[in-house]
Structures are given as structure tokens and as C-alpha cells.
Design a binder for these strands. Structure first.
Length: 815
RNA sequence: GCCGAGAUGGUGGAAUGGCAGACACGCUAGCUUGAGGGGCUAGUGAACUUUAUCGUUCGUGAGAGUUCAAAUCUCUCUCUCGGCACCA
């Protein structure tokens, strides 16, 4: 009697052995083709929950599969360790963010090791270590040198709970992406990265194997629209500006302008407002400012505004157009000013209705009879009331009008984007300090590269006040100017943590490199990543920023590629009680208890088996025992003695076994490549079920049986690495199964000799015949029509057509 | 409102034009066993038929269509999830 499968014992044993043997250390000098299997590193929140396992375990399976296929695989792991939660937790518990973060890393590293993944821990990266953030700061300097960094006073998104500004990408439905607090606005002087310079490139994904969903989200985020910028004349002696510029996608409707709307923040508002309108305008500006992003953006929010008392001149027809302010006009998009064409824009139509402004049709709707419109007409049509452009199709008129305007210097064709520059300043302690110095004499001066890192002082009082805690650390703030040597003050804001994660995948290539952020040779070898897996929630954050970094580095001549991740795959979310897992909701599922009860291999297999990886699902552990049982059955199949060849020729033959074996190899390999782990495991289950039958049948010789078991173990090795290693060793095969070559299928052995031929009458299944696989069409049709079961349905009827699908079915159409 | 994904047994899911429900979970029965959601075997979409187990009909959110053939393709609609949302 063999002893039972005891996961906790064998998992600890093999993890130790693999670590001792450095089995998974990725070597730069390995001559085999490289494979960079990248998994999003976790934030150091404290505990790995089952969702982390769902991200980590299948990606490890795929990396292991690539190993066995003969690749030199880099599968690194690290920790995204800066950020507000560390600071908040530390404040709550009165401990230092570093202490909190490091103890979390301890725990998470232990949990990660329990997965049994092939992480190369010698390449671990922790973003809050000075050896790392030194280079994050270096990137800031390089982007500064490249002209991609600037400082500007701007209305910014403010999270009152985090007490810090947020980038646009980090505002989700008007709320902070991390703490879900409604975001308000503030005017602050902040650091920005000019990500908009790469707008066009960021919306393209040529040659990338990425989910369509993510590509579309990124393209929508960039929000490119083509149109024209054109100016309206201003004629006020005491106002120095002589025009107001607007952006429009519909230059064809410029003859239909009946008002202009400025954003409340538009710089001309105060200059133009007349004395009579001053009070109303000031009150409106005040109201608009107090509105949170949510209120302002809510669909129900009525479009309102106030007349400024001033007028602009529509240069095309010389009309005076009243200037209003309205908070539906965004200061940050286009020019912050909109031409109001009520007849051809839904918002303008509503606005005009409310304030009794004229609705002038300039693009005739189909069959228009000249009567007033009941709603805005936004489609194309024939031009009317537009001087010399009358009669033209509106699409053509748009181009003609743009050209007309351009010739007179009143405007030009242009492109506008929704994407805004990346705001990276954060008024918090736990982040990489921005390596800049404010000198009274020299202005803003970058810290010298040799003086990096600008160390985060340990002794800060890090209570959030709305200002950076670093402001109150005199020893940090007071420095000398790198340029003139005089007294100067350091920048006290820290960097958005997304900066740290925008380049960590480069650091893995040469994690200990001291002469730069990365060793160009190592990066040349490993990058770009062949596959990147992680949650889809970072579509317009991390993934977007990383692409920006990569492109900027390419243009600096520091990288010879512009896309960091060739293939992207987003696993779904594991919810619990149909809600996202979070500590505050108290619905976090800890994998540790399952691992200690049933072993990592069972948990790995279960997570992959519950459904398509991209789909996720609600956590329900009721099926996990099925997977544990399955491994137990394979344990017996492989290890319990088998005396084959008993019935000699009866029952299942060695040929049947080899055919099923090769079919399984084909299915498993194909599913692996497609990351279809659920069907991959189903295929393995079918194979083990078949082996059970073979064993019961007893007609296959021992050596054939053994060979099939060997194949099963190899195919199972990525999924259940400890289990496969243990059984492999017990069968006396050489260590390690993970260094074995991935099995290949033989096309000749895959094909069945006999196949079931489906026979339908009028599309309904009537019989199934076992026929030779290479049956010809005529015989197949003949056999089908001669079937007794079929003849019941064809008797007395006329055969109209007989459809034959080779190797599959015959459909007899009768009447 | 716009964009994207989806809806299949009691449950998770399989099948991407050709046998619907693979593979599991659960359940039922039997065997085994000293119990602790133990092991093994068989059955398990629904209805009908039948004390003949053979068969028939229906069935993939709803409705139409294309096709010899539709879960799969097309159109319309409903619902669910995700994203974007006054972008001029």
C-alpha cells in the first residue's frame, strides 16, 4: 500500500530544494531563446488575497510551460511599495510607513513563495528602497532634460481624504481611485509630464497582441477629434485681446452661431464682463468653483450660464454674438471657449431654449420644410443660410470653410485631445521626493545626478495637512543650490507612485545595476516583455504611463523599442459575495487556509479550472475538493502497481492509449498557448479518466502505461509543480520534472482510425455510424441512406439533397 | 447617452456554423468503510412515452431572419457586468 498524497509535506520539501538548486534563476548568459513573463507586481497592502493568487498562479503556470518548451524564462516578482495606504495605516497605528511596508513585504513574500512559482527572487525589486527610487528620481531628471516635465499652476483634482492632488486618470467617476472620496478642485502649482506629446502614438497599438477592450479604452482616453480652431473678433478698446479662439468639430456650422460660451475659468471673462453683469457673473463663477467634479459632470446637471454683457464678431457674416459663461464648457479642453450653434448641437439647443437665443438652421435636415426644429439636427445635409457655401454638402463645406478661414488668418484645421498632461506631484510623505531645488537666484534647478538619491527623511511628521509633510523637515528643505551654491529650498512634494511602476519592468533586467536605472545590455536581452498579465483596472493608468515612459526613453535614445509589453492579458476579478474584495468590506478571502488544508497545487488547479481566466467570477470554494480528489486519483494511477497486458488484445489497445495521449498533448499545448486554463485542465482530467479505464481494463502492457503516465505528469507539471515533482521522483525518474522537455504530439498518432459519422435527416440527428476515418464521400452517403434508423424518416419521401461534411456528418434533406 | 463584454442544466462552465451540456461541483442510489463535507461505482437538461429503458418532442435571455444545418452568423429588443461621459 502506498502512502497518501500529503501536500504540505511535499510542497515545503520541493520549494526548499528548488531554491537550494537555484532552479529558477534567470541567467543573462543562457544561450536559449529568452522569454520574459511579466506579472504585475502587487501593492504592499499587507496580505495576499485569493485575487492575487488568481493573478499569480496561472501566469506562473504559463511561465513554467515556456520553461519546459525550452525558453530561458525570466519571471520576476517585486513590490510596489510607496503610496498613501502605507502612510495612512502608519498614522493609524503610530508606526513608520517604512516599518509597516517592510513587515507587509515579509508576509507577502512568504505567501508568494507558498504559491510555488518560479519567481527569481534574486531579482526582487522594492520601489521604496533608495537603490530603486534613486533611479525613479533620475527618470524625472531625464524627462526634465527632454523637455517633458513642466511646472504649472492649474485647477487640479483634489482628494480631501488623501489630502493630495490626483492625475486625471486617477479620478474614477468623479471619485478618488483609491479611497472613493469625491474629488474637488483646487488651484495649485504642480509638476506635470507632457504625456500629451505622445497622444497619437498612445492610441495606436500596432503589432501588439492586446485585448481589444483595453486598446479601445486607451484610444477613448486619448480622445482625438479632428476639427478646426477659429477666432471670433473682439472689438473693445480697453481689452488688449482682439479675438477669442474656439475649437469646433463642425466648422460647417459657423454661420449658425448664435452665442459664444466661455468656461468660467476663461481668462477673458473678467476683462469682458460689463458693469451691469458683474455681480451675476461673479456669483456664477463662485458657484461653479464650489461644485465638485461629480455635481458638475452629472448628467442631470442642468446646462446653465450667465450673459457677460459683451459680444464677439462672427467674422464670416459680421454678426454680433453675445458672450455667455457656462460651466458645461471645460477650461481644460480645446480653448475653453465654444461657439454655440443651437440648431446643430444638442447642448447648445437646450441652452438656447433656456435663454431664448436664436436657433438658426444652416445644415438642412433631409426633407426640411423651413420650419423651426424640434430638436438639434446633428447629421450631415445641404448647406443653407451660409452665403456662398449654400447648396454644398455639409461635409465638403466644413473643409471649404476651414480653408476659407485659414486663408484669411482666422483659423486653421487642427486636432484636439481629451488626454491631459500627467500631474505627478503629491502632497504626501511616502513617495520618492522630486529631485528639484528652488533657488531665489537661479529659479528652479534640478538636483545633480551624482547627488541622487534625494533621500526621504526618516524623521518627518507625516500627518496629512494638505501640504507635503516634507515641508516641515528643516534638514530636508534647506539645501544649497546645485547651480550657484547659495542657500536654496528643496521641492517638498513627492512623486505619484505610478512613476515607480512605470519602469520597474526595466529594473528586473538588471536589478543590482549601480551605474544606471538599467543595464542597456540586459534590457536589450530581455525586453520588451513577451507577455504581461494583470488586472484590467490599470488600462488608463499604469499601462498608459508605462507606455509613455518607454516611448520617452526611446526618443532619448536609451531604448530601441517603443512598446514595453508585446502581449497583454487581463485576468478577471475574483469577487466575494459579488463585491470586490477589500479590507473595509471585510470580505477578503485568504488563500492561506486553503493552502494549508489542501496544498498549493490544488488551489492553483482550482483557480484555473473555475472558468476562463479573463472572466474571473465570484469566489465559491465548493468545487475545490474535486480538484484535490483529482490529484489524489492521479497519485494512485501513477504510483499503485500496475500489471499490464493481462487480457492480451482484448479491450483498449496500446494504440488507443497512444492516440488519446497525443490528442491530449495537442489540446493541452493549444490551450496553454491561448491561456485557456480551464479547458486545459478538463483535457488533463479526461486523460486521467481514460488512464483509469486503461488500468481497469488491464490490456495495455506496462511500458505503454508508464509512458502515458510520464506524459500526464509532464503536462501536469506547470499546473501542479510540487505534486508532479514528487510523483516523478517516486517513480524513480531523474530530477527535475521541470527540466523535462514539454511533450510534442505526433500528427500521425492523433488521428482516429474510426470516427462516428453523424447522420441527420432534415438537420435532425437520426443515427451515428462508426466508419473508417478515411471514408470517401460516396460510401458515406450510401451508408447513411442505408441506415435503418434513417430509413424510418426517409421512407416514402423524396431525397432533395444530401450534404456531406468530410469526417463529420451526412445530412439528408427530404420532402 | 456612447463604447465594450456577456446571458447555455440545480451550480461553475464546454462546444465559434455540423452530435448542445465536455470537464467538474452538487444531488440520488449502491458498494465500501471506525466517524469527522472519507473512498469507489452508476445515474443525473426538461417533458412525454413505456411496469417493452427503446424512443419521441422540446430546449442555449426574447422575437424575427439567413442556411441543408444556428448556442454560434444577421437584424430588433430585454437584462447583467465593465469602461467613458456636458470633449464643443
Amino acid at each position: 500500500m502506498i502512502d497518501k498524497y500529503n501536500p504540505s509535506e511535499i510542497e515545503a520539501k520541493w520549494q526548499q530544494r528548488w531554491a537550494d538548486d537555484n532552479l529558477y534563476q534567470a541567467r543573462d548568459d543562457d544561450p536559449r531563446p529568452k522569454w520574459y513573463a511579466l506579472t504585475m507586481f502587487p501593492y504592499t497592502s499587507g496580505d495576499l488575497h485569493i485575487g492575487h493568487w488568481y493573478a499569480m498562479a496561472p501566469s506562473d503556470v504559463y511561465a513554467r510551460f515556456k520553461c519546459m518548451q525550452g525558453y530561458n524564462v525570466l519571471h520576476p516578482m517585486g513590490f510596489d511599495a510607496f503610496g498613501f495606504p502605507a502612510e495612512n495605516a502608519a498614522i493609524k497605528r503610530g508606526i513608520h510607513p517604512r516599518t509597516w511596508t517592510m513587515s507587509n513585504i515579509e508576509n507577502m513574500r512568504r505567501q508568494l513563495k507558498s504559491i510555488g512559482a518560479i519567481y527569481d527572487w534574486s531579482r526582487e525589486v522594492i520601489t521604496c528602497e533608495p537603490e530603486y527610487y534613486r533611479w525613479t528620481q533620475w527618470f524625472f531628471l531625464k524627462l526634465w532634460e527632454a523637455g517633458l516635465t513642466y511646472r504649472a499652476k492649474a485647477p487640479v483634482n483634489w482628494c480631501p481624504n488623501c489630502q493630495a492632488v490626483l492625475a486625471n486618470e486617477q479620478v474614477v467617476n468623479g471619485e478618488c481611485w483609491r479611497c472613493e472620496t469625491p474629488v474637488t478642485r483646487r488651484d495649485l502649482e504642480q509638476w506635470f509630464f507632457r504625456i500629451t506629446k505622445y497622444a497619437d502614438e498612445l492610441m495606436k497599438h500596432d503589432g501588439l497582441d492586446w485585448p481589444e477592450r483595453i486598446k479601445i479604452m486607451q484610444a477613448n482616453w486619448v480622445g482625438r477629434s479632428e476639427g478646426a480652431e477659429l477666432s471670433f473678433g473682439l472689438d473693445y478698446p480697453d481689452v488688449e485681446e482682439k479675438e477669442i479662439r474656439v475649437f469646433t468639430t463642425r466648422p460647417d456650422t459657423v454661420f449658425g452661431v448664435s452665442f459664444m460660451a466661455l468656461a468660467p475659468e476663461h481668462p477673458l471673462v473678467r476683462k469682458l464682463t460689463t458693469a451691469e453683469q458683474r455681480d451675476a457673473v461673479e456669483a456664477y463663477i463662485d458657484k461653479a468653483r464650489r461644485r465638485t467634479e461629480i455635481e458638475r459632470l452629472s448628467a442631470e446637471h442642468e446646462k446653465d450660464g450667465v450673459f457677460t454683457g459683451a459680444y464677439v464678431i462672427n467674422r464670416l457674416n459680421g454678426e454680433n454674438v453675445p458672450i455667455w459663461i457656462a460651466d458645461y464648457v471645460l477650461a481644460s479642453y480645446g480653448t475653453g471657449a465654444v461657439m454655440g450653434v443651437p440648431a446643430h448641437d444638442e447642448r447648445d439647443f437646450i441652452f438656447a431654449g433656456k435663454y431664448k437665443l436664436p436657433v438658426k438652421v444652416v445644415v438642412a435636415p433631409p426633407d426640411w420644410n423651413g420650419r423651426p426644429l424640434a430638436e438639434a439636427y446633428t447629421g450631415p445635409g445641404e448647406m443653407v443660410h451660409s452665403d456662398s457655401f449654400d447648396g454644398m454638402p455639409s461635409e465638403q463645406a466644413g473643409i471649404k470653410i476651414s480653408e476659407f478661414i485659414a486663408r484669411r488668418g482666422w483659423g486653421r484645421r487642427t486636432v484636439s485631445y481629451k488626454l491631459r498632461d500627467w500631474l505627478i506631484s503629491r502632497q504626501r510623505y511616502w513617495g520618492a521626493p522630486i529631485p528639484m531645488v528652488h533657488c531665489e537666484k537661479c529659479g528652479i534647478v534640478p538636483v545633480l545626478e551624482k547627488d541622487l538619491p534625494v533621500l526621504l527623511p526618516e524623521n518627518a511628521e507625516f500627518k496629512p495637512t494638505g501640504e507635503s509633510p516634507l515641508k516641515y523637515v528643516d534638514s530636508f528643505v534647506n539645501t544649497v543650490c546645485p547651480q550657484c551654491g547659495g542657500a536654496a529650498k528643496r521641492e517638498t512634494d513627492t512623486m505619484d507612485t505610478f512613476m515607480c511602476s512605470s519602469w520597474y519592468f526595466l529594473r528586473y533586467a538588471s536589478p543590482l545595476y549601480a551605474d544606471g536605472a538599467f543595464n542597456p545590455d540586459a534590457v536589450g536581452k530581455w525586453l520588451p516583455a513577451d507577455i504581461y498579465t494583470g488586472g484590467g483596472e490599470h488600462a488608463v493608468m499604469h499601462l498608459f504611463y508605462s507606455r509613455f515612459f518607454t516611448k520617452a526613453l526611446r526618443d532619448m535614445g536609451r531604448l530601441d523599442f517603443g512598446e514595453p509589453f508585446l502581449r497583454l492579458f487581463n485576468q478577471g476579478t475574483i469577487t466575494h459575495d459579488h463585491q470586490k474584495m477589500s479590507k473595509s468590506k471585510g470580505n477578503v478571502v485568504n488563500p492561506d487556509k486553503y493552502v494549508s488544508a489542501m496544498g498549493a497545487d490544488t488551489v492553483r488547479a482550482y483557480l484555473m479550472f473555475i472558468g476562463p481566466w479573463e472572466q474571473g467570477g465570484d469566489w465559491d470554494d465548493s468545487g475545490i475538493y474535486g480538484l484535490a480528489r483529482w490529484l489524489g486519483r492521479i497519485w494512485s494511477l501513477a504510483l499503485e502497481p500496475y500489471e499490464g497486458g493481462a487480457c492480451g488484445g482484448e479491450g483498449l489497445s496500446p494504440k488507443d492509449l497512444s492516440r488519446v495521449t497525443h490528442q491530449t498533448i495537442r489540446r493541452v499545448t493549444g490551450d496553454m498557448e491561448k491561456l485557456r486554463f480551464n479547458t486545459m485542465i478538463a483535457a488533463l482530467m479526461e486523460f486521467s479518466n481514460f488512464l483509469g479505464k486503461v488500468r481497469e481494463n488491464g490490456s495495455v502492457p506496462v511500458e505503454d502505461y508508464r509512458e502515458a503516465v510520464r506524459v500526464l505528469l509532464k503536462l501536469l507539471a506547470p499546473t501542479a509543480p510540487h505534486f508532479a515533482e514528487e510523483v516523478w521522483a517516486r517513480l524513480g525518474y531523474a530530477y527535475s520534472i521541470h527540466n523535462q522537455k514539454w511533450p510534442e504530439w505526433d500528427a500521425a498518432l492523433v488521428e482516429d482510425e474510426e470516427i462516428p459519422l453523424v447522420v441527420q435527416v432534415n438537420g435532425k440527428l437520426r443515427d451515428r455510424l462508426m466508419v473508417a476515418a478515411n471514408i470517401d464521400e460516396a460510401s458515406a452517403k450510401k451508408l447513411a441512406q442505408e441506415s435503418e434508423k434513417v430509413m424510418v424518416y426517409t421512407a416514402g419521401k423524396t431525397v432533395i439533397q444530401v450534404v456531406y461534411v468530410p469526417g463529420k456528418l451526412v445530412n439528408i434533406v427530404v420532402k
